[in-house]
Every structure is written in structure tokens, then in C-alpha cells.
Design a protein around this nucleic acid. Structure first.
Lengths: 106, 106
DNA sequence: ATTTTACAAAACCAAAAGGTTGCATATTTT
DNA sequence: AAAATATGCAACCTTTTGGTTTTGTAAAAT
């Protein structure tokens, strides 16, 4: 099975999990309580996040605190940023066009 | 079926398709030639990209030119950027720590 | 010592994803 | 007019995904 960051963040539940633990690590049950699906389902999502490095686990007694490793998102950021020029270029020329239009109408 | 940008870019073949047509629109067959899978498989990937707005089609005779709409990636960019502080913050404090260490050793 | 809590993981299931072959249709080419 | 080309799409298949219930185990609370 593929297990990369792009695939991990494709699921909205997993994105929500990441958001929940962004500020403060939580244990699996605390995370699961916020969702309608079973704890096992959330555990499986968490496992995928762990396997691709987006989440790190610190065991503390019988609890396992899940911590978000957002720096793994840099892979996604880098990929997207290489295409930014393709859309900012368009917006720039639109801006130029509008500026020209305004000059004419003065 | 879900059809959002996050899901669309989760597949490596679709990311490669986007890259191929980033600079210049291509018709479906030209794109398909670069892959080992069938034309139909590529057509299906293309359909997903079209449905989520990442690709636009211009019909020209019997050919359909597929054009990348990279601005749709801003949704992904926005999502990732809201978490950037979580990893740059860590790097910053590491830098501070190293600076302090260097001062001490002078 | 017993019960409760937090969790992992197996077994199972339906639906979605990603692929195939085959056929229909509209435009070019020859 | 006939052949070739570019494409859409149905029908089908296998694997993956996202979910469930059930079972087992270790730590904490009573």
C-alpha cells in the first residue's frame, strides 16, 4: 500500500484529526470522541498519519499522545509552490489589463 | 463520490498529468502516450481532474485540449500554510539554541 | 483483587478506486 | 466513400479504503 503525505491528507477526517492535534497532542480516545465513527475507525486513520510521519506518538502509561508533525507538510507545500507562477502570472496580467483600462478612461 | 482537489492530487499519476500539461495544453492521447496504462485509464484520471476544476477542456475538431488550472491548488496551499507556523517555530527555536551555544563557547 | 480504562488488532463487509477490453461516434485523411 | 484517428463510455474485474464488531492485553482506579 502507498503511504505518502498526499494520500494521507486526501481524507477529510484525517485533515480534521491533524487540526485537532495541531496545538496540543491528544490521546486516541480524546480524538475519537469528536467524531461520529467508531474509535477503531479513528485509530486506523491515526495509523495512516503515523505511518507517513505526520503524527508522532508518545506513550505515557496506558495513554498514547498523538502529536502532529506539520513539517511533513512541506512536501505538499513544495509541490504546490512550483506551480504558483502559473496562476499568479495570470492574475498579474489581469491587473495590468485593468490598469490600462483605467488609464484609457481618464 | 467525493471530488475535491485534495483527493485529486492524492494520486501520483494525476500529479504527473498535471505536470505534463502545466506549460502547454495537450490532448488526451498525447498525455496517455507517456504512461504505461491504457488510454481509458488516463481518460478516467483526466475526468477526475476536470470534475474538480484542475483541468479545463477546449474542443478543437476531434481533439480535446486539456489545460491545467493551477489556481485551484490555492485551496491546498491555503490549508498547508495555516500550519506553517507549527514547523517554522520549531526551526526558529533550534536556531536560537544554536546561536546561544555558539556565544557560550566564545 | 477486581473492575475500568486505553488501546491494538483480527475478521469481516460494502463501496470506491484504478485498471482492463470492447464498442460507438464524430472528425479528418486518403 | 472508405479508412484512420481521437475520443467517450459501458461492462467488467481486482485491490484498496473506510467502516464495523469482537477479542485480547496492559495500566490505573476502586
Amino acid at each position: 500500500m502507498r503511504r505518502d503525505v498526499f494520500q494521507a491528507i486526501a481524507d477529510p477526517t484525517r485533515r480534521e484529526i491533524l487540526n485537532m492535534i495541531a496545538y496540543k497532542p491528544l490521546n486516541v480516545n480524546s480524538v475519537a470522541e469528536h467524531f461520529d465513527v467508531s474509535r477503531t475507525a479513528i485509530y486506523k486513520h491515526m495509523k495512516i498519519l503515523i505511518e507517513c510521519g505526520l503524527v508522532d506518538v508518545k506513550q505515557q502509561g496506558r495513554e498514547r499522545y498523538c502529536e502532529a508533525k506539520m513539517e511533513r507538510l512541506s512536501e505538499v507545500s513544495d509541490w504546490v509552490e512550483q506551480y504558483r507562477k502559473f496562476w499568479t502570472a495570470k492574475l498579474d496580467s489581469l491587473e495590468n489589463y485593468l490598469n490600462e483600462l483605467q488609464k484609457k478612461n481618464k
